[in-house]
């Protein structure tokens, strides 16, 4: 049977686009090959490592197991869309650098996209919830703690809790000057 193609219309990083794709192509392939958005990494290709994570209509998805044709009418954000007009890094990207949450960098774009969704949710996640929310990503270098700290600090800053963010220590635990009083 001959290959089948379809036209996909969607918004990528704020820009409306139209692209002819093989109906079997993954969104990862479309973003990398047709739009040169190479922050979207091809890792496991079965939705387990999280390196290909993009934001679709405000929620994180593994683009490697998401068909490109399913993106019709959707709003998609990749890491390239987070930087400012002059290439300025977003606060979550800067936090990854500041906290040493990067080593080889392969998993980083995926982690940042999920983190971006978390810090922009307007919700304060508990440490356990934060770890669970990040559990769809695998990192073989950093040991996760620095990543966790970067996300927690940025989340607290987004919630206006600047002092609390500064108290997040190297173990990712918020330190208080005195023991918390019992209620």
């Amino acid at each position: 049977m001959a290959k089948q193609y379809k036209v996909v219309h969607c918004t990528i990083n704020g820009k409306k686009v139209e692209q002819v794709v093989d109906v079997r192509a993954s969104l990862t392939d479309m973003l990398r090959n047709d739009f040169r958005l190479t922050s979207v990494k091809k890792g496991c290709e079965v939705g387990e490592c999280g390196a290909c994570t993009v934001i679709i209509n405000g929620e994180g998805f593994n683009s490697c197991i998401y068909l490109a044709v399913w993106a019709e009418g959707k709003e998609i954000w990749t890491l390239e869309g987070l930087t400012g007009p002059g290439g300025e890094l977003s606060d979550i990207q800067q936090a990854f650098i500041d906290e040493g949450a990067i080593q080889c960098g392969f998993c980083t774009p995926g982690f940042i996209m999920t983190s971006w969704e978390i810090v922009n949710s307007g919700r304060e996640y508990t440490d356990d919830e934060l770890r669970k929310a990040l559990s769809g990503h695998l990192c073989r270098c950093t040991g996760y703690e620095n990543i966790f700290r970067a996300v927690k600090k940025t989340m607290l800053r987004h919630l206006g809790k600047f002092e609390e963010a500064e108290k997040v220590n190297s173990q990712g635990i918020t330190e208080y000057p005195e023991p918390m009083p019992f209620k």
Binding site: G47, E48, G60, T114, K132
Partner: peptide, 9 residues
Amino acid sequence: MASRTKRNM
């Protein structure tokens, strides 16, 4: 299913 991004799908 541990991954939230997978649970979204």
